[in-house]
Design a binder for these strands. Structure first.
Lengths: 123, 123
DNA sequence: TATATATTTCGTGTATTCGCGAAATGACGA
DNA sequence: TCGTCATTTCGCGAATACACGAAATATATA
């Protein structure tokens, strides 16, 4: 599956482009403390179960297929990660992916001439 | 038209979520020098005509309805601006909007506990 | 094994998106 | 005014997205 960087990025933005998914992501960004793992990456220690996410977004007590599908889509593009823990699925945001997307936009928000970093937008 | 911040942001991400529109935006980010206007904002002095954008993206010599529609969508959500200049439409990227979107992601890429700025993701 | 809980997959209807060609609009020059 | 260039609007068909309920899967517990 050789997906180009361009398409990958577009897919991530696309995933962010739905109000429901954006709410899910915001919720996952705010839940739980964080820690530094073996590789030195910053990531949340805890996350939220699919049910908790659904409760936050829809008010329902149990998860439904709609939210499950949104979680799947966010996971497919790498914006969140999910891991089974007993009966539950624990989801957490992938902060590195989020940061790289943010940097991409910031780099393009800066005019070419004023570039100081090596991560410029023109090559 | 009371569009919430959430929906506005989702609409902007959605606009970025198409490979063709992303290419258009990248092109507009790179064309032309920039200047500082009266209000102190940084913006490109020049931009690109709709035809130039289309040439870059599709290779065609003239603009077509597809690219025109993409430009309209990018403009509707505020990511680019367009202005008529004689027979041409000159488009330029709205760097401030781009920057604010980037900041939004960066803020959420940072764990709540480690927040230093006032633009945190949890309120 | 049977039952309950948590989540995902599947099928379906409706709505939206994308690209295209034809026609319309706007601006300029002969 | 007429023709031409640059762009937008309109109408259409194919593809995709979103939400929903029903059925399937996975895990734990009695």
């Amino acid at each position: 599956m050789p997906v180009s960087n361009e398409e990958q990025r577009a897919a991530m933005f696309r995933a962010l482009g739905d109000p429901t998914r954006l709410r899910i992501l915001e919720y996952l960004c705010c839940c739980g403390p964080t820690a530094v793992d073996e590789e030195g990456g910053v990531r949340p220690m805890t996350g939220a179960t699919a049910g908790e996410v659904c409760c936050y977004v829809t008010g329902a007590k149990q998860i439904n297929s709609t939210i499950s599908a949104h979680l799947k889509e966010l996971r497919l593009v790498g914006l969140i990660e999910g891991e089974r823990q007993g009966r539950h699925m624990i989801f957490r945001v992938n902060r590195e992916t989020l940061a790289s997307l943010g940097q991409y936009l910031q780099a393009r928000a800066t005019a070419p001439e004023q570039e100081e970093t090596t991560d410029g937008c023109c090559e």
